[in-house]
Design a protein around this nucleic acid. Structure first.
Lengths: 215, 215
DNA sequence: GACCGGGAAATGTGATCACAAATCTGTTCC
DNA sequence: GGAACAGATTTGTGATCACATTTCCCGGTC
């Protein structure tokens, strides 16, 4: 075999740009309604307009960005109806994912979740909004990875992406020292093998924060 | 006002290409594993590689196409696990959409559904696979449009898109003169305002065919 | 007959450019 | 003072090109 396995020597430029923008959006680092330009993105990542355009198309397709009639791209202004819908989607998808992960949840996973949870508490104390959002999503992703349902997980992440720009705003309205209460319930239900309890805990955790925005 | 309202005078080239490919994939006109080339697409639609590439990026982002490590694009070969997952997603999303549409379902909608249903029967008699798939999706979309949940509908359509290439294969295994049995149940439940019945009928309709593929 | 190798063709990637449309800006006019 | 207009600038779009890599095909070797 002549070809040495090099899994990802230098990701394509459009991939780099895509990943960069994606995590920024998902973590709420871009305000709703903020607008972007192809040349600006290109300059920022040191590439030409071509890869910038491709990454934008991808993000638009995933609902992370909207583009106006004239082709201008910006993060979507989110309405209450849309938030309600996205919260319902999170509930539907993530309850199912958690349920599928339950029979596969070993002790190692529970340890991992508890560790991530500690990180979340730390972020709350530090008032680090981006860190909080990132850790919170990490908690959910760690659990759902056990569901062995990649298409479903991808859909859930797409919903997170669409909610990204409002997450920041959401965080501002949370109680300052709010501990991840429902996360504890999720872990307890996992330990007990309690499926109805797990479903309820996930549903509450997922809709709790978003309810604040719609009222 | 100087600017005359022209809602869509000439859709951008990449949009045309995107729509063209999308409907072909969703209707099952492209076999699983079939591969496409940027130059080929460009030649077919009379455009250069640039719009072809953008539409491909979009479709890949939506899961309608996969691209290999070397960047080659093709329709995804679908495994049984993936089909099971996508069927579960259809079930989750479409049951919810139908449920939300129920309180808004007027007589005009029911008439429309019955009319589409007639078209489906016709397609079955004609052994027109593509027409069958198209009419079937039209039936579901007409119902879900009443749910007033655009983000959720978009997700459901994404799942249809991902199932597209296997729809054709599925059709081949259906009984020749199979009438849209569960569609009748859906319409009956709508008329009766029977929510549990509607949820069940949609779940059965959505998973019925796909079950054939996994066994 | 099957496997391997090398060269030719095909393919994806990214940069650059021209062009049209949209946006911005500074000035003028009421 | 504020609205309207015209020119300048910015921006998205799509075509074209060069380049590196991959894929394909044909001939040779064991």
């Amino acid at each position: 075999m002549l070809i040495q396995t090099r899994p990802d020597p230098s990701p394509a430029a459009h991939e780099r740009v895509y990943r960069g923008l994606r995590t920024r959006i998902m973590h709420g680092e871009i305000a709703p309604g903020e607008s972007l330009t192809l040349r600006g993105i290109g300059r920022e990542f040191g590439v030409s307009m071509t890869p910038a355009r491709e990454s934008i198309r991808r993000l638009v397709a995933e609902g992370a960005l909207t583009l106006s009639a004239s082709g201008r791209v910006s993060t979507p202004e989110i309405t209450n109806d849309r938030i309600e819908e996205l919260a319902a989607l999170r509930s539907l998808l993530e309850v199912e994912l958690a349920s599928r992960a339950l029979p596969r949840a070993h002790i190692a996973l529970i340890d991992r979740l508890q560790s991530i949870n500690g990180g979340i508490t730390e972020m709350v104390e530090r008032h680090d909004a981006v860190g909080y959002i990132r850790s919170n999503l990490e908690f959910h992703r760690a659990l759902y990875l056990r569901a062995q349902a990649p298409a479903m997980l991808a859909m859930a992440e797409t919903v997170w992406l669409q909610l990204g720009p409002t997450m920041r705003k959401l965080y501002g309205r949370l109680r300052r020292s709010e501990p991840p209460h429902y996360h504890r319930l999720i872990i307890a239900a996992l330990k007990a093998g309690d499926e109805p309890g797990l479903r309820l805990a996930v549903r509450m955790d997922v809709t709790q924060g978003l309810r604040l925005l719609t009222t």
